[in-house]
Design a protein around this nucleic acid. Structure first.
Length: 571
RNA sequence: GCGCCCGUAGCUCAGCUGGAUAGAGCAACGGUUUCCUAAAUCGUAGGUCAGAGGUUCGAAUCCUCUCGGGCGUACCA
């Protein structure tokens, strides 16, 4: 709790029949500066005091004492409004930002705790398409937010590298893929991700005509699970091809993982997991499959073993959760996966609960809406996709064109264009709340004006430019009472809320809270910038404003980093 | 059918655990660059917060129903 709110609580405690904690909960920020810096609404205590809220606030305004920190108390209707010492306020906040610099916003909230975050997790043997972006970008941001709050974070890419789909691919590869008879080794077939992708699409097309192919595919997956050598070798090769492609894209996006333990990783542990469920008396055979009946909980059964005894994704997810608890002893296990899988998570979370794992309450499915075309859902199966790499490339190209038009002299144009092009894509993914479905629109995603990543990056670059031209570096030693403008106060108020913003974003696993905050901060700064000069003759005021500008720069930089965007100093 | 999610300006979205006049951006129209990067900024216009009830001193926010849209609903992930 900051010293200003603490002070207000202390003052109020004397006259108000509420605990300090309760009072703090009621304190809010007035809608504009004239109404003060903090407010206490008197509705809640009206009943207890048997008096009208407006009267109570008027009386309190008379009674309560002011001091060095709280310099004014005024009643406006039912609200009791507090005015803090601007000098104190500027001094406290600007000092914090200055001394903490790159770690401003950090806290020890998550100290000693571990957050495991499962994100991206694409199915291999297919291109990364634009609808794969959401999990990766949102998960990466959630990872960074938690890290900033002091959590030990483990980012896991739970690769979809197991399952019936690999049976399908093997079938397709054997039927329509390059011939291996003459070349011996599968590595010499010249297969690449494009061809793999085509095989996948072709399988689903042909399987519509010829359902027997599905049985053949299930059969091959079963062989794969049982360690059949041909199946293994083919699968391994598919995986290598895919991973090298994925890593290239992740690098462009600046997204990293601590572990690539995908679904196949758990294959050898599956039996133990299933045995535990059996022993707990939770499973039964139904329609030849091994299931956990969840009728009692109004859910379809959770299938552990298909009739051919092969595993399903629920089996592997249960096993993975157990493993992660053993391996990392997490306090939070976050799955960043599309909302269409909600039921699946509810099902296997329920099974974990029935198995007696209390820690299931710290597992959370952080869901997000679908990416759609104007024509409908994007589908890798039907080959209806926009490739992620194409989108990134196009975005960087546009960024480069803009730089050529505006700042052709820029030294590291390519690097900056990539930072902005990629930044635009990432930011647009994070700018609205997760749950919303998004309609993919080239024009919208490639627009660099208004509430966008480039807007935030541009503001940052502009700040850096001012500081460069200033000639001297920002110093902490300024006359805080020289900052008299409302725009200056508004800016520092935003800076104050950075950490609270991160805490709220972590609580709801909602990175858009951070992106909205940054847009707000930038817009506040740009307004200030438009109306007030920084590099002025008055040396003392200039020094004060330079510190203010440097603080804003610092917070924007920290915020962009957390969201996974670069903060170029020139653009 | 049942379950979950969504429905705020022409479009895309904010609106903290209910609170002081519902806010941005895009698109449209009109201003601001001999001045710290105009990827900016200022202004105009645009809203029965899907609809109807209810709870409350007070509802875009909570509850119920209706309508509209999305997703899911046993051997895919």
């Amino acid at each position: 709790m900051d010293i200003f709110i603490k002070n207000i609580v202390d003052i109020l405690k004397v006259e108000v029949p509420l605990s300090g904690e309760e009072i703090e909960g009621f304190i809010e920020i007035p809608p504009d500066l004239e109404k003060g810096d903090y407010a206490f609404p008197c509705f809640a205590i009206a009943k207890q005091l048997r008096n009208a809220p407006a009267k109570i606030s008027a009386e309190l305004a008379q009674k309560l004492p002011t001091g060095d920190i709280i310099t004014g108390i005024k009643a406006i209707g039912p609200y009791l409004n507090f005015y803090v010492s601007r000098k104190m306020f500027f001094k406290t906040i600007l000092n914090d930002v200055f001394t903490e610099s790159d770690s401003y916003g950090c806290s020890d909230l998550g100290k000693g705790k571990t957050a495991v975050i499962d994100y991206s997790s694409p199915n291999i043997a297919k291109h990364l398409a634009v609808h794969h972006l959401r999990s990766a970008v949102i998960g990466n941001a959630i990872h960074n937010i938690h890290k900033t709050l002091g959590y030990r974070c483990v980012g896991i890419n739970h690769l979809g590298d197991w399952g019936t789909q690999f049976g399908q691919l093997i079938v397709a590869f054997k039927r329509w893929g390059p011939d291996t008879k003459d070349q011996g080794s599968i590595q010499e077939t010249g297969l690449d991700i494009n061809k793999l992708n085509k095989l996948y699409v072709q399988f689903h097309k042909e399987a519509k005509e010829n359902p027997a192919l599905e049985d053949e595919a299930r059969d091959w997956f079963k062989k794969l699970e049982n360690g059949n050598e041909e199946a293994r070798e083919t699968w391994q090769y598919f995986k290598e091809i895919s991973l090298s492609e994925f890593e290239r894209v992740y690098e462009k996006l600046g997204i990293t993982f601590d572990s690539y333990a995908g679904e196949s990783f758990y294959n050898d542990m599956l039996d133990d997991t299933v045995d535990r469920i059996k022993e707990a008396g939770l499973s039964e055979i139904s329609e030849e499959a091994l299931i956990v009946n969840l009728e009692e909980y109004d859910m379809p059964p959770c299938i552990l073993r298909k009739k051919d005894d092969a595993s399903l994704y629920a089996t592997r997810d249960i096993c993975a959760a157990e493993y992660r608890k053993r391996e990392y002893d997490f306090d939070k296990l976050i799955y960043v996966v599309g909302s269409e899988q909600k039921l699946h998570f509810n099902q296997f979370f329920k099974v974990l609960e029935l198995m007696g794992y209390e820690w299931v309450s710290s597992c959370e499915h952080v869901d997000f809406g679908l990416v759609k075309f104007k024509g409908g859902k994007m589908s890798t199966r039907e080959g209806k996709v926009i490739l992620l790499e194409d989108l990134l490339e196009e975005s960087c190209k546009i960024a480069m064109e803009i730089i050529e038009g505006k700042n052709a002299e820029l030294e590291n144009k390519e690097e900056v264009a990539n930072a902005i092009g990629i930044g635009a894509i990432i930011f647009s993914e994070l700018s609205s709340k997760r749950v919303k479905d998004v309609l993919f629109d080239w024009d919208e995603i490639l627009n660099f004006d208004g509430e966008t990543g480039p807007y935030v990056q541009y503001t940052h670059a502009r700040l850096c430019s001012v500081l460069r031209k200033c000639g001297e570096t920002a110093t902490n030693d300024i006359g805080h009472d020289l900052l008299k403008e409302d725009d200056e106060l508004l800016l520092v108020k935003k800076l104050e809320f950075f950490q609270l913003t991160l805490i709220r974003a972590a609580k709801s696993c909602e990175p858009s809270i951070v992106s909205k905050y940054l847009l707000d901060l930038c817009s506040t700064f740009n307004r200030f910038y438009q109306h007030h000069r920084i590099l002025i003759d008055d040396a003392e005021l200039k020094k004060a404003r330079v510190l203010l500008v440097d603080s804003v720069r610092q917070v924007i930089k920290n915020g962009l980093g957390i969201l996974g965007l670069k903060a170029p100093e020139r653009m």
